[in-house]
């Protein structure tokens, strides 16, 4: 591979890595901070992707909209709509214990997928949405546009990271973690456990929606098959647990390192004999499945484990 090719390969890895970092940060708010299980990541990702695409594409007779809004408005809309869907889901399901919440969240993700596939007035069905605009499209063209997009995506990732850090250390975040660690004593201390969990679920879903929107703008095209429900959900879980659940830095490091592994193995599996090449993605899936088992048994705290924040004595003294 020539050098520029390698460079742009790296750019594409980092763009996808940024999208996964956002998903991971969203899941970290839900699971890492709040202890709320979500196995329907793909559903909220897809909701955000369609929301942003419909808001920003130009008017079409084939589906609702588009509304031709700027990309930032589309992403904002993606966050709001995914967040609202998440809030509604949480409102219904949040009282469920983790195993049941896992079932319910997969069920909801599947219903969202069925809606996307079947309601063509909304999503143009299996034909998908095309002509989804890139942000700052005027700045560069061709492959350099990818660099612009890379910068754009990581500005958002960093902004969300700082937002999550503030959240983690805020009184809200502290209450949330208290609930995660001991629900009974937190509720005895007068915390409205349910309210906190609904909020954490909605915020996490909003971030996942933004990630979905970004992926629509990156690929410029969106079809129901773009969101393989299991793979996205599963990869994000592996990333968060490997990176260090409860730690925002860990979430990003986990997302990048697992995505890097996933992509690099592709280079190797592509060198397999031709009759194996079609099956190479399954080999990688198998490896990720095994990696998860390893992480769960030996490496549960992750690359950057969560640390209890240092006690801060009030500065006035």
């Amino acid at each position: 591979m020539e050098l520029t090719g390698l460079f742009f390969y790296l750019v594409s890895i980092l763009i996808a890595g940024g999208i996964y970092s956002l998903l991971c940060l969203g899941l970290n708010i839900q699971w890492g901070m709040g202890g709320v299980f979500n196995a329907g990541i793909a559903g909220f990702f897809a909701t955000g992707a369609y929301a942003s695409a419909i808001l920003t594409t130009s008017t079409s007779a084939k589906h609702i909209g588009g509304f031709d809004l700027p990309v930032l408005a589309g992403l904002l809309g993606a966050g709001i709509i995914s967040g609202c869907v998440g809030w509604a889901v949480a409102k219904i399901c949040i009282r469920l214990k983790s195993d049941y919440l896992a079932m319910a969240s997969i069920g909801i993700a599947e219903i969202l997928r069925l809606v996307i596939v079947n309601e063509s007035w909304l999503t143009n069905g299996s034909l998908g949405l095309s002509g989804v605009p890139r942000p700052f499209a005027g700045l560069a063209s061709g492959r350099t546009a990818d660099i612009v997009f890379l910068v754009f995506i990581w500005v958002i990732v960093i902004a969300v990271f700082f937002f999550s850090q503030r959240l983690y250390d805020s009184p809200w975040g502290r209450s949330l973690r208290a609930i995660r660690d001991n629900e009974q004593s937190a509720s005895a201390a007068g915390k409205d456990v349910e309210k906190f969990r609904i909020q954490t679920f909605a915020i996490g879903c909003a971030i996942m929606g933004i990630a979905g929107g970004l992926s629509a703008h990156y690929f410029r095209f969106l079809s129901p098959s773009a969101t393989d429900p299991l793979l996205v959900t599963f990869l994000v879980w592996v990333m968060l647990i490997a990176g260090g659940s409860g730690n925002n830095r860990g979430a990003i490091v986990g997302a990048l390192s697992i995505w890097f592994l996933w992509s690099v193995t592709e280079i190797f599996t592509n060198r397999l004999p031709p009759e194996w090449i079609t099956r190479s993605s399954f080999v990688r899936m198998l490896l990720v499945g095994l990696l998860l088992q390893y992480v769960l048994q030996r490496f549960r705290a992750g690359i950057i484990p969560e640390k209890a924040p240092k006690l801060r004595y009030s500065e006035e003294e």
């Binding site: 983790s98 599963f234 095994l290 998860l292 769960l296």
Partner: peptide
């Protein structure tokens, strides 16, 4: 906590399928 086994079973689902 059983949730770890739940996550593990997700992985096993993927292992079986792949």
């Amino acid at each position: 906590p059983t949730i770890y086994t739940v996550i593990s079973s997700f992985g096993v689902a993927l292992i079986f399928r792949s």
